[in-house]
């Protein structure tokens, strides 16, 4: 029998990688989540999470932090993305690069630098855990908000705003009735890119030496105490929360401007 090379074979290396480093770990985590120290099946870890006021409190606090970071990022990024995309700034590619470049610098180095700056401003940074967390995460995630917004706003056909002007809208009304609604897909993907990592981030907090405790740190604390079972369960719960959030925003995007984007 003659053997043909199929394009499908090109996927094999990735599939192997996927199985060993993505699928297997998830299975392991899942296994740990539903077993106890003796290796017996149990749902105690699940009930432990929901009966612990501390864990629930941490979850709510994480959501609050992630929400704040997302809002701050959005408020900072939108005007920048808008001006880059619309305002007649020449060489806007260079400017865009300026916003993106920090992403290319080593992460730990950046956070260390930020720590120095914060220390210079605040004195002892341990006194301001909340604000430092927000600043640190905003600093880290801002480019992920700017990029999708920039892409979406550049794609909005200028004739839409001309048509709105033609129908009697001044520039403020053009923005709120046309540009903003049409950039919703960009806002959604920006929010996803910032909100979800912000929920689980752990390194930034750790490096900024503060006591703010969010989901990432909670899991970390279980693991550092060699309690793999409860830590894994929390990871799984978080995974489901994120999946649910993803599902909801996807539906929202579809129902709204997602299809509009197809016309653009």
């Amino acid at each position: 029998m003659k053997k043909y090379f199929s394009r499908r074979y090109l996927c094999i290396p990735y599939c192997i990688f996927l199985i060993f480093f993505v699928v297997l770990p998830v299975i392991v985590i899942f296994y740990y989540a539903v077993t106890n120290g003796e290796g017996e099946f149990t749902l105690n870890n699940l009930s432990a999470f929901f009966s612990s006021g501390y864990a629930i409190g941490t979850l709510l606090y994480s959501i609050a932090i992630a929400f704040t970071v997302t809002v701050v990022c959005l408020l900072l990024a939108y005007p920048v993305a808008y001006i880059l995309a619309k305002g007649g700034i020449r060489k806007n590619n260079v400017l865009l690069l300026l916003f993106i470049t920090p992403m290319w610098i080593n992460f730990t180095l950046r956070i260390t630098a930020l720590k120095e700056v914060l220390t210079a401003i605040e004195g002892n940074i341990a006194y301001y855990p909340f604000i430092n967390t927000i600043i640190g995460m905003t600093y880290d995630f801002l480019p992920f908000m700017i990029l999708p917004l920039y892409t979406t706003i550049t794609k909005i056909d200028n004739t839409f705003s001309e048509a709105a002007q033609d129908l009697g809208a001044d520039s403020v009304k053009v923005f709120f009735r046309i540009t903003l609604p049409l950039s919703v897909p960009g806002i959604i993907s920006g929010v996803m890119m910032v909100f979800l990592p912000a929920m689980t981030n752990y390194v930034i907090l750790d490096m900024l030496y503060n006591s703010t405790f969010i989901m990432g740190s909670l899991i970390g604390s279980y693991f550092s105490a060699y309690d793999w079972h409860n830590g894994s369960m929390i990871s799984i719960i978080l995974l489901f929360i994120i999946l649910a959030a993803n599902f909801v925003t996807d539906r929202f995007a579809d129902g709204n401007a997602g299809k509009g984007r197809a016309i653009l």
Partner: peptide, 11 residues
């Protein structure tokens, strides 16, 4: 104005 490619608001 009636625009060349209509420019109807997709949203």
């Amino acid at each position: 104005t009636v625009f060349q490619r209509y420019a109807l608001f997709p949203h």
